[in-house]
Amino acid sequence: MSVAGADNPADLHPLVARVARFAQTTLKPRMLHTDSEGVPTAIISMLGRAGALNHLASPRFGGAGLAKAEDRRVHEHLAAGCLNTWLIWAQHASIAARVEAALEGADPGHDLIDGLLRGRVFAGAALSDVRHYPERFIAADRAKGGWQFRGTVSWASGWGLNEVLLIAGVDAVREQVVLALVPISERFTASPLHLAALGGSRTFRVDLDGVFVEDSLVISIEPLAAWQSKDDQTAVDAKPHLFGLAAAVLEELRNEPHALARDAAAAWAPRVEELRSQAYALADAGDASNFYAERLGVRVQTGEALSTISKALLVARAGRSLQRNDSAQYYLRSAHFLLVQAQTDAVRAAQLARLG
C-alpha cells in the first residue's frame, strides 16, 4: 500500500516499519468496526508500544525525533489503516514536538509535561476555536498563579482517551493567545457530536466552566495576529493523511473485479502521486509563504481527487457499497470529512470557487 511505491526510503526506519505493520495487520481489519464502535483504549496503548506517542520528541525524553519524511509516512500509514484512529492520534502526535520546542532546552517543570514528552500522557487538542474570534472562542482570563479558561470547545476528538487537552484560549484584553496543557476535570462538561463520518473518533463538544490552569502548564503566549498568520499558513497544505487515505482507496480499486474500476485506479494513481510530490515540495520550500496560492490549489485538487476515487469505488460496487460493512461507503464519507477538516475561510473559498 503506497502511492509512493513499496521502496519508499522512510519505510526503512524501524519505527515507521512498526507503524506500517500495525496499521495493516491491526487497524485495517477492524477499520469498519472502529468507525461504528469507536477507537478503544487498547489501540492507544499499542501505539505507545510502537513508539508512536512521542515519535517527534528528542531522545532526551525517549522519543525517536523523527525527521519530516518519516513523520509524514507515519501519518500516511495510520490514515490508510483507520482514519478514526489517525484523527485521535494526530491530535496528540504533534504536541510533544510543540511542547519541547517551547521549553528551549529547559526542564519540563511539571510531571504532566514530562509524561507527555515521554509518551505516557495522552493528550487531545482544542485549538481551532481561535479561528472564530471574536464571534466565539475560548476565553483566557488572567488569574493568580495562572489562567482561567471558559467557553465551549467546538471539537475535541479522543474524548475518554485523553488525560489532558492542549487548549488555545484568547486573552481578549491583550489580544494574545494562551496555549496551555489543561488536565481534564469535573469542570469539563462534554456532549458527543453524532458525526456522519468518523463516528468512531470520540469527538465531543466540551464546555469549560472557569477551568484553572497553573502557569507551569502554560506552553506559550503570543500575539493573536501572529497565531492567526501561522495557523493560516499551516492549514493551507495538503497533508499526509490525505495521501494515506488515497492510497488505501486506490489499492481497493486495483483489486476490484470490474476492469473499468482497475482502469480508474491506473489512471488516478499517477495524479495522486503528482499531487503528493507537489504538496511536500511546496511545504518544504524555504520561502513556502510565497507559494501560498499554489499550496492552496494543491490542497483543493487533492481533496477533489480523493473524492473522485472514493466515488469510483462506490460506483464499482453498486448497491452493496452502501452497506455499513462495505469499505466503499466508509471511504467516501471519510473523503468528504477531509474536505472540511482543518478548513479555514481561505480553504473554503478556494473549494467553493472550484465548484462554482
Rank of each mutant, 00 (worst) to 15 (best):
A17V: 10
A17C: 11
R18W: 01
Q24T: 05
T26P: 07
P29C: 14
H33N: 07
D35T: 11
V39F: 04
L47F: 04
A50W: 01
A64E: 11
G65S: 02
D71E: 13
E76G: 07
H77C: 15
G81W: 12
L87G: 01
G109M: 05
H110S: 06
H110D: 15
L112V: 09
L116K: 00
G124Q: 05
G124S: 14
Y133C: 11
Y133I: 08
R142A: 14
G145H: 09
W147P: 11
G151A: 09
T152R: 11
E163L: 01
A168M: 04
A168K: 02
R187I: 12
P192S: 12
L195N: 05
R205K: 13
D209S: 09
I219T: 05
S220Y: 04
E222R: 14
A246P: 09
L250A: 10
P257V: 07
A261E: 06
A265G: 04
A265D: 03
P270C: 09
R271Q: 14
V272A: 09
R276T: 04
G286W: 12
R295H: 14
V300L: 05
L313H: 09
R317M: 08
R320S: 13
R324L: 10
A335C: 01
L338P: 03
A342E: 15
A349V: 04
